[in-house]
Amino acid sequence: MTDCKPQKQSWLSRAFNLTALQKSRLYWIDYLKGIAIVLVVYRHSLLGIQGSGELVPGYLESANMIFYSFRMPLFFMLSGIFASLSLRKRTVKQYIESKFETLLYPYFIWATIQITLQIALSGFTNSNRGLIDYTYLLYQPRNLDQFWYLPALFNAAVVYVLIKKYITRKWWLLLLIALAFYFLSPYLQRISMISDWMEFYIFFAVGDIISKMFFHERVQHFFRSPITFLAAIPFFILAQLFYLGNDMYYLTSAIMRGEFLFIAFTGCFTMIALSFMLQRWNVFKWLRIIGYHSIYIYVMHVMVAAFARTVITHFLDIHNVFVILFFCIAAGCIVPVLIYNLFIRDNFAWFLFTYKKRKKTIQNGPIAQSPFQATLS
């Protein structure tokens, strides 16, 4: 008689949720989110080091600029790819409620936590926070470090779904509306709660528009081919050289904004092709774990990286930029995963990511899908 008693997970397996690697998932998605979130942690770790007064080599800043050109568009596009699939399982009302729970709720909780810590620990951080910063939660999330993304994705997703449901389903008209939002967004930057979703809405829209063909076997085979990735590399390099050479970070003209779209989509295409290659080779599995936990890393990494930088520079008196950057990135990616799996998932702090307490996951079988695993997809 077979013993069906659940086997207890090891501490390491539970801490990193290694059973996620055994789930029946599209691995390229986790690879893609893993790549994107590591680049996000790189950016904010580098900015923190610069803000602390350390001298950062120019090529590290150039790398940050390159990553910036496609990193956040990639998140929005990936979310758009799965929008229609999500709507097949939910009504529009249920879809909006789901997005509120997975995006806006953790936004308000974690942004408040970060602001409070930055005020309380102002002597050790680079931030200059005050009580006024709490008001930015409602209209100016761009002033709150990394948190702007969560309300921007919520707003973009809700507006897109409402337009597609009640106004038009024609792809070309959806694309024209997205282009109009994109080019109008600079005029509303004083209220980033509005301008942010308008600027990145187009990547969400394109993701949904291409989703109808994206999962066809012929398209999947195209991305699984090494030739696709190798062919994309020269275009990616040329696009990034053009981006760096023309100082396009601030996108001061409509022409530059149009050029940026080409650069961003080139970067997104290349990263998607790379993620399919990683899935094909089944290497760097740690990226899948990072990608699977990307939402938790996103909300916590600035606080964790700041703490790591403070310890390294103030207490260990280490000022080598590469050492600081390495440990900030490592801590920013790993510590949030540990915190979530050991103290939040199925534990006493569950309310930090959801207002609906869920049943405990099964430890030796398929794990119940957390609503946040699809947040950045």
Score class of each variant (00 low, 15 high):
T135W: 11
S86Y: 00
K99D: 00
R169V: 12
N64Y: 08
I177S: 03
I177M: 04
L153H: 05
I81D: 00
I132R: 07
P73L: 05
P57R: 04
T135Y: 12
I132P: 10
Y136I: 01
V161E: 06
L137C: 02
Y68E: 15
S86G: 15
R71M: 08
L162W: 13
L174K: 12
F75E: 10
L131C: 05
Y166N: 14
L60S: 12
L150H: 06
F124M: 06
F124I: 12
N64R: 08
R71P: 13
F75V: 07
A63G: 09
F75N: 07
I96F: 07
Y149V: 02
W148A: 08
T91D: 14
W172T: 12
L103T: 08
L173G: 07
T135G: 00
V92M: 13
F75Q: 04
F154D: 05
K93S: 15
S98N: 11
G130R: 05
Y149G: 06
V92Q: 15
K93W: 14
I115F: 03
Y105Q: 10
Q146V: 15
I96Q: 04
R169N: 14
L85C: 08
P57D: 00
I113L: 02
T125D: 10
A83S: 10
F124E: 15
W172K: 12
E97S: 13
V161G: 02
L162H: 14
K170M: 12
T116Y: 09
I81S: 05
L137M: 01
Y105F: 04
A83Q: 03
D133F: 07
K165Y: 08
E101S: 12
L162P: 14
F75R: 06
N128W: 10
D133M: 10
L138K: 00
L150F: 07
S84A: 03
Y107I: 04
S122V: 10
Y134I: 06
I81Q: 02
I109Q: 00
V158Q: 02
L117E: 02
W172R: 04
L176V: 05
Q94S: 07
Y59L: 06
L153R: 04
A120D: 02
L175E: 13
V159D: 03
Y107P: 06
I163W: 00
L173P: 06
V92T: 09
V159N: 11
M77W: 09
N64H: 01
D133Y: 06
W148T: 11
W171T: 15
F76T: 01
Q94A: 15
A157L: 00
L173R: 02
Y59I: 04
K99T: 08
M77H: 12
N126Q: 00
L74N: 11
Y68T: 15
A178G: 05
K89I: 03
Q118R: 13
F100E: 05
T135A: 08
L175D: 15
K164I: 13
L137E: 05
A120G: 00
I177D: 04
Q140M: 03
Y134A: 02
S127L: 14
P57K: 03
L121C: 13
G130H: 11
S84N: 10
W110A: 02
L103V: 09
N128Y: 00
